[in-house]
Design a protein around this nucleic acid. Structure first.
Lengths: 340, 340
DNA sequence: CTGAAAGCGCTTACAG
DNA sequence: CTGAAAGCGCTTACAG
């Protein structure tokens, strides 16, 4: 239906090889020949057939982004950064939502491979990613992990400075006079491990003893953001800690937990920050619209996505690249509002 | 590097045509022959080369989703529904963010076409979509519009029941005794036109006279959700209306406006709903976390996305389908909280 | 600097 | 029911 390179060659009176060479600037072509080709191209309104080229070059120009939970705004912003960065290089990003299900995640990776993506960016649902070794065995497809650190599979990763961020937040709470700070999170993975490490460091530095009962992690049986029970496990944890009079401040380990904690504080009519101070990891616009507005450790998901895009592009462009796997950390910072 | 259909044919002792036929179930193959092929396939761990197949069949199995503003959670949820629906049919969805820029939108469509998508779902930045006629001239690529109604280009659309939703909300306000309701929106397009129409209908039905000064639309010079000035035009509009003592209730025409209106009410320390009642079009989880929680006309962006996926799939599967363009409406409903 | 030709891995009339 | 063969539209050694 559409015009092919052959017809361009015929009209221009040259070979298809020459047409291809001017189109792709793969070889030097005499100016005169070149212009003949260009005229033919524009006369015929020729457009290269990307399907044929992809086939020939063995690439699809699409990168798959497998997201643990697409209804979580954190990952949505990662997607935004990823798309912007990759579109610079002429790549499309195809989204796959795993809805916090490992089974679906594996399914998604398989489907992406079956449609032959050139690379994979994964925010994994669970940390065990052994399955990838088998699935990727016969595929030369680079992988970059974002936000969550996998085990059982080697690849580049882009993560937040979880440790430093939490350290910063806890340190601030301590400076405000808090010595009993509850750390509440709905997950229990290496990311949370890093944040808890930051908590410990701040305590250590201040010469305070960590009370292990103040660190409450979830069971990893997480529901997706969209279906979030507004109370959930973080709600219960906050309630327990506060009612027992155990703490003077609450630190939510991630954005989902912050919702549960906030809802408890609000429903229990607790004065924030007077009675209980509140700080959360992961910023969002709604934190400035609550009463009181909520202070947060701000991550940069957009940057995480765009850096992941660069990494995957590097790996694709330079397949011989034998450089070891990298872990890149994207800075976090403290955004102060009224809850601390 | 990987094994091809030829090698399978050789090992099975049949022709490549036969292998292809059992793989795709395109023809009846004798059971015995079939099993020979299947054994060879599994022995060689053969996997079809999707690039070759796509090339041969003239399809890419990817649908482009061009989003006016990917940082707006409304469209993120459309993307979720779209991905789920299309992945059922074996299609990938590639995201492109237009950041409310028409130029970027056109760029995105071109890039998508240059990478040869099989279909286009568009949430357009501006209503004038004439440019598509030219760009799509030589492409047999079906288009479905979501959320915003274009002009200058004919295609299927999936929209919310804007008129009915606004009608429902305004009617509720009127029942609560409000007769002077401000309609505030940061945009001025056909979607807002439909919502304003609902406003008028509710007034008409109640035998009330519409005061045109109470309907304040934006200049369409919208910034993206992410960069949202928390005050913005809706903030100013709300302030004007309330300070003039013009209204007893405020209706925000979309989610971006609701942020501006809410921020004004909060900063001005206005008691909601006692002094001013507040209702917004478009629901979100944060509306239940403010004080007071905010009532909303709930749309179903996920459904909009998934229906759009079905429509585009239909158009792709049945190219001869000469059925006229459809406008599908997804229902909205009233979610009551404390602000009315 | 240019061209003739092979070939990427499939699918699909066509013939038998 | 099966196979031989053409061909999709490119890119890329290779030869000149």
């Amino acid at each position: 239906m559409s015009v092919s390179i052959k017809e361009v060659a015929k009209l221009a009176g040259v070979s298809v090889a020459t047409v291809s060479n001017v189109l792709n600037q793969t070889k030097n072509v005499r100016a005169e020949t070149k212009s003949k080709v260009e005229i033919a191209v524009s006369q015929l309104k020729y457009q290269i057939n990307p399907l044929a080229r992809n086939f020939r070059k063995g690439e699809s120009k699409v990168i798959g982004f497998v997201v643990s939970d697409l209804s979580n705004y954190f990952f949505q912003n990662v997607a935004i950064g990823l798309e912007r960065s990759l579109s610079n290089y002429g790549y499309l990003v195809a989204l796959m939502d795993s809805k916090e299900s490992k089974t679906l995640e594996i399914e998604n990776v398989k489907n992406l491979l079956a449609l032959s993506v050139d690379g994979l960016v994964i925010a994994t649902t669970g940390e065990d990613c052994c399955y990838l070794n088998l699935i990727l065995e016969n595929h030369d497809v680079p992988v970059v992990f974002v936000d969550r650190k996998p085990f059982g599979f080697k690849s580049d990763m882009v993560l937040s400075t979880n440790n430093e961020g939490a350290y910063l937040g806890i340190k601030h709470l301590i400076q405000k006079g808090h010595e009993k700070i509850g750390f509440i999170t709905s997950r229990n993975d290496s990311t949370m491990g890093e944040r808890i490490e930051g908590y410990r460091q701040a305590y250590l530095e201040a010469g305070l003893q960590v009370n292990e009962n103040h660190i409450l992690t979830g069971d990893n049986n997480v529901s997706i953001s969209q279906n979030l029970l507004l109370h959930g496990i973080a709600y219960t944890q906050a309630k327990r800690l506060v009612e027992a009079g155990e703490v003077t401040a609450l630190f939510a380990g991630n954005n989902l937990s912050s919702i549960g904690v906030y809802n408890y504080l609000r429903e229990a009519n607790i004065k924030v920050p007077e009675e209980i101070a509140f700080l959360t990891f992961d910023d969002s616009f709604w934190l400035s619209m609550t009463t009181p507005s909520i202070s947060a450790i701000k991550q940069d998901p957009d940057m995480i996505g765009s850096v992941a895009g660069q990494l995957i592009y590097e790996r694709i462009s330079d397949k011989t690249n034998e450089q070891p796997d990298r872990i890149l950390r994207i800075p976090t910072c403290l955004v102060l509002r009224s809850s601390v």
